[in-house]
Amino acid sequence: MSLFDYFFPRKPASASVAKERLQIVLAHERSGRDGTDFLPRLQKELLAVVTKYVAVEEDMIRVSLGKAGNASVLEINVEVPHTAKPTPAHAAPA
């Protein structure tokens, strides 16, 4: 980055803004399409399983279906906070 760019930051080109916006909106719309409407149910069931072991909130599990080349990628993200306590029934024996 030149000194000129530092003092006069250029706006990102509008085409890259368009690309980013499209990728976000299409990822969302594709997940609602036929065949992938199982995502909310999957998310619920995963939550049920995970909470058996660790206490997590509903919004800490994110499930999404994306595309990479010719393959579909099912992405499951579970956020486990540091402070999460094991659910008592399944706590490791002391």
């Binding site: 080109a13 509008s14 085409a15 690309k19």
Partner: peptide, 12 residues
């Protein structure tokens, strides 16, 4: 940078 490129559209 005013228009989506071929590569952009192909990728999306």
């Amino acid at each position: 940078g005013e228009m989506l490129s071929v590569e952009d559209v192909k990728e999306i």
